[in-house]
Design a binder for these strands. Structure first.
Lengths: 348, 348
DNA sequence: AGCGGTTGCACAATCGATAGTGCAAGAGAT
DNA sequence: ATCTCTTGCACTATCGATTGTGCAACCGCT
């Protein structure tokens, strides 16, 4: 109610008797370098506080050709893997005095590109792209625009990438599925299925490689029908698992679900099954969700270390690295029916 | 590689032979009003496209005193309720040609206030605040700064609010817990517990009211120890449920968990229990998570309609409403072991 | 040819902050 | 008292876009 419009350095200058440039220096912290006396600074600070002054970041950004913004593009918000990443990204951005802007592309390349352009328009200082659907176009654009960018989760060829060690994570998970229980004959036990994801994505193809290699090591290379890459949408995963169970007359000995979203779809089907249906099966999911860790049946989950991935990405930026190197971060296999300890580590 | 720096309207002006103001009009869409010929516009558009021109939003924002940004503050990202809200918020922001900026406060009032100030510095056009911890301070600041704001999930006194009908949702859930199974004597069956949240928050206090009223209707008003408001942190919820089960020698006949984060903590304890432990209990949780819908024991969940809440909030903005009215949106009780249909509705 | 009315565009001010530069007043040295 | 520094600050241009205003050129008409 004091003022309808926000106070500017000109208002503060008028009220304090100083010039706008002095006010700017006083409030921006540049006053020492500009030899403004401490007493003047104090006066100005007091008046600024009274007036509720706040720097107009658009003006500062325009003048400095910087914005103080960092962008992160993720496929979706409502997914534990990406929302955890958002949480880490935001915390680390703040630690650096940057303001995080997070946008979701819904895995649509056109939307993704539009977001990149929008964020560039706002002069974000760095752009993190998680789960990029079209990394090359993004790099082309960013390199032309002089925008530093870094890929997370899925790698790109036009800039540095931090991804998780998908081969390792998938190997661990596949071996787990093969090693666990069912008192089935060896051959039946090896008949495990891979479900979800997109073959053209780097992560999925690495995971499939690992899956295939694990089965091969165990003496029974998978047939093509054992690898069902039906995308990430819950609905299609639900359709596929239903069709598969129809064909097999029940669950396979093991199921490797390739993302939380696909897993949601799988659950959409499981919901109709009796508990006994799971007796002869082992279920695994690449990615972790604390609730999924306590379902009716045990689920082996791979927890990607999104916090560490973001740390590494910021570290690359700090080191001024712009070339197309790839850094891999180790994921962790979580025992079924356990809640990840880190979840409780830093709280209360 | 074309240019190290981004092209500006001055560059386009030089290349096209037009003046900067003409270029601006051509590219911003104002050319008709400014009587720029269509052929000139075409030429300019072509050159702009070649140069990869993109409007500098900081400059535009400075000049127009608008930014094209809308802010949303949520407590945390990695929670299904809030991340779903983010998803809705983002989609609806884009529909309006606005760029969403989402920040999390971690339920820290100081951090929350800092975020409000930061977003104000960037001249966001509207500010949505979900789960506000200190709504009055936010309103005071925003009203002084001329920043339109709206509360979601938790109401405020200094601006319009869209919240869910907590009393209704909690009544439905409490009645469900009271109605379900156990073949216990009436009195033991009525001994259900409320766990989590913060008494000083409006949502929690309304839910407690409803909880209390439901028990009273059934003839056994709750004793104080039946209502455990231990905040939202998983860790403290875990501690409290452990302590409670210690006191009771097992689970109570019913447990009303007051948030997903608290529920995570509860699961952290349940993880150590045998399946039989749940035989005589009914579990409910205020808020919905698709994975939680398929745990070892059935869980009754209340799904708040965050998408509709965001719609209503935008509608208030459109209608130019700034007073402190409160709009309530109906939540939905989800049957255990069902996956919310909407989850699959709009996908592939 | 002269006149009022469009067309199509250029000029210049402006948004708020920052940064290069210049200058008066005071301190210190001789 | 003069000269040289230093201190403390004001002036002014600038970032890139938008917008109010002015003005030639051209049109049709008389």
């Amino acid at each position: 109610m004091t003022q309808p419009r926000k106070a500017t350095i000109y208002d503060i200058a008028r009220l304090s008797g100083a010039s706008p440039s002095t006010v700017s220096a006083a409030l921006s912290g540049a006053w020492k370098a500009r030899r403004i006396s401490e007493s003047t600074v104090e006066t100005i600070r007091k008046i600024a506080a009274e007036q509720g002054y706040a720097t107009n970041m658009q003006a500062r950004g325009l003048r400095q050709a910087r914005s103080g913004l960092v962008g992160l593009i993720i496929p979706v918000h409502d997914n534990r893997f990406f929302s955890s990443m958002s949480q880490s990204f935001e915390a680390q951005a703040r630690d650096r005095g940057l303001v995080p802007v997070i946008a979701s592309s819904l895995r649509d390349p056109a939307e993704e590109m539009r977001i990149v352009e929008t964020l560039a328009s706002y002069a974000v200082e760095y752009l993190f792209v998680a789960g990029a659907t079209d990394p090359d176009s993004i790099s082309a654009f960013c390199n032309a625009a002089g925008l530093r960018h870094i890929f997370v989760d899925l790698p790109g060829n036009g800039g540095p990438s931090v991804i998780s060690d998908n081969h390792r994570g998938a190997t661990d998970l596949a071996e787990k599925l093969l090693a666990e229980k069912p008192d089935l004959p060896q051959e039946a036990r090896n008949k495990i299925y891979f479900l979800g994801g997109n073959r053209s994505s780097h992560a999925t193809s690495r995971r499939i490689e690992a899956f295939r290699a694990a089965l091969t090591r165990h003496g029974t290379p998978p047939s093509p029908e054992q690898i069902i890459t039906c995308g990430y949408a819950p609905r299609s995963a639900m359709r596929e698992i239903a069709a598969l169970m129809d064909r097999l007359g029940g669950l396979p000995a093991g199921l490797f679900v390739n993302s939380l979203t696909a897993f949601e779809g799988v659950l959409g089907h499981f919901v109709n099954l009796p508990p006994e249906a799971f007796a002869q099966s082992v279920i695994g999911c690449y990615d972790y969700d604390p609730f999924a860790a306590y379902l009716q049946f045990p689920v082996h989950m791979v927890r990607q270390n999104s916090n560490h991935m973001i740390e590494q990405a910021y570290a690359l930026i700090d080191r001024g690295i712009n070339d197309a190197r790839v850094i891999e971060v180790e994921p962790e296999l979580i025992q079924p029916r356990t809640i990840y300890k880190g979840l409780f580590g830093e709280m209360g």
